[in-house]
Amino acid sequence: MNSTAASTAGTERTPHRVGLLDRFLMQGGIVITFLVIAVVATALIEPRFLNRLNLINMMRNFSFLLIPSLAQMLVMTAGGFDLSVGAVVAIASVVTATVMLVGSGYFPDAGVLLILLSLAAVVGVGVLVGSVNAWLVASFSLSPFMVTLAMMSVLVGIALYFTQGIPIYGVTDTFVSGVGRGQLLGLPVVLWVALAVLAGCIVLQRFTALGRHIYAVGSDERSARLSGVRTGRTLMAAYVLAGVLAALTGFLMTSRLGAGHATIGTTLALETIAAAVIGGVSLRGGVGRAEHVALAALFLAVVANAMNLVQVDSKYQTLVLGAVLIVALAIERLLLRRRQA
């Protein structure tokens, strides 16, 4: 009798322990563990990591990765991909510098006006690119992977043809000093912008009908349509938001670089997908939380900063990023099998 009770208790405790582990992993435990290990290891190996100037620089780089990663998360949660985020960043950078360069001839002393005009222009670019992506995917049932890959090629070609690979100068000093290098309450201005975008994404996902519809479309588009969700409009909203956020990233990166570059953002497609997957966004859609993606982006920023501090060759940095992505995909597959078991 006692042995039977002990055996029963043992079988009850094991699923409980497994359930707690699964819950921890599903609630961002993987990325939190990765982040803590990366921060502690870097601080021990390289004391310069905790230097204030280094931390400020890392926060800026984190911001430039966080915003497009949130864009990628929105599209992936809706069941798609957006390989054009890096190209949108590049074209937005070129547009920002061009508008400021041309506008300065008409409004030479209106730095704030030029900033607002260039921001309006890049938002328009983001809306246009996102709309075309969504229209092709939703109207013709084309593969999001192929559509956005083609869009990436088109945008990169336009940017390189327009600039001939030469940076476009003429960015206003107000923009560079106030946004790119500016600080507010001791933190970079671009970080505050990125945190505002993060807060907006969290509100969108948790408290709006659009957020619920994006999850529904990503989980099962047919069931969502039968439930009354306008799947075409939902996909349009997800891709347009992604395009706007990617364009905003290019706008902010221009403030940091002080010029428009057609060659920036070349690795952002891989980096944003890595941040999304490490942050728990499912490749099949319907799963993903903005705060977890933010932690994953911070983890990647810490890893990149650590490799720069110890002077690891940039080619090996790309190798490390690919290896981390493979590990994240393997973990996602193992968790899926555990839930289905």
Rank of each mutant, 00 (worst) to 15 (best):
G86K: 00
P144H: 03
V102C: 13
V75N: 08
V112S: 13
I115K: 02
L136G: 04
S84Y: 06
Y169N: 11
T33P: 08
S139K: 15
G28P: 02
V85R: 05
S141T: 10
D173E: 12
L83Y: 10
N51S: 03
F34Q: 01
V132P: 00
A134K: 04
V95R: 01
I56D: 09
L50G: 06
L128D: 11
S84C: 11
V40E: 06
F175P: 02
V129Q: 09
V112M: 15
A121V: 10
T172I: 04
L66N: 08
F34M: 13
S118H: 00
T148H: 09
E46L: 11
I158Q: 08
R48V: 03
I56Y: 09
M59Q: 15
E46Y: 11
D82G: 00
L119K: 04
T174V: 12
S139C: 07
T42S: 14
T172D: 05
I37W: 11
L50T: 13
V102N: 14
L136W: 10
L114N: 00
N133I: 08
P108F: 07
S104M: 15
A150D: 12
F145C: 03
V137W: 02
I45G: 09
T77C: 12
M76K: 08
M152A: 15
V125I: 13
V122F: 04
I91Q: 13
V127K: 08
A90P: 00
I32F: 13
L142G: 08
A121K: 13
S69D: 04
M59T: 12
V36P: 00
F64V: 11
L101I: 00
M100C: 02
S139D: 14
G86P: 03
F34T: 01
S131A: 15
G29L: 03
S93L: 09
F145K: 08
G105C: 10
T98I: 02
A110S: 12
G80M: 06
L74M: 13
L117K: 06
G157R: 09
P167C: 06
N51Q: 12
Y169C: 00
E46S: 15
V85M: 00
M152Y: 14
I67Y: 01
F81C: 10
A92H: 07
V75I: 07
V75H: 02
R60K: 14
I168G: 05
N57K: 02
V39F: 11
T148R: 10
T98A: 07
M146Y: 09
I30N: 09
I45Y: 13
G28H: 03
L50M: 12
V31A: 00
G28T: 03
N54E: 07
V125Q: 01
E46D: 12
G111A: 13
V75Y: 04
N54Q: 13
A134T: 05
V36H: 11
T148K: 03
S104P: 01
G79H: 10
V102S: 15
Y161T: 07
I37K: 10
D173H: 06
N54P: 01
S104H: 15
V75M: 01
L117H: 06
G103D: 11
I32E: 06
A120F: 13
L55E: 12
V36C: 09
R52T: 14
N133T: 08
P167E: 07
L83G: 07
D82Q: 06
S153V: 15
I168D: 04
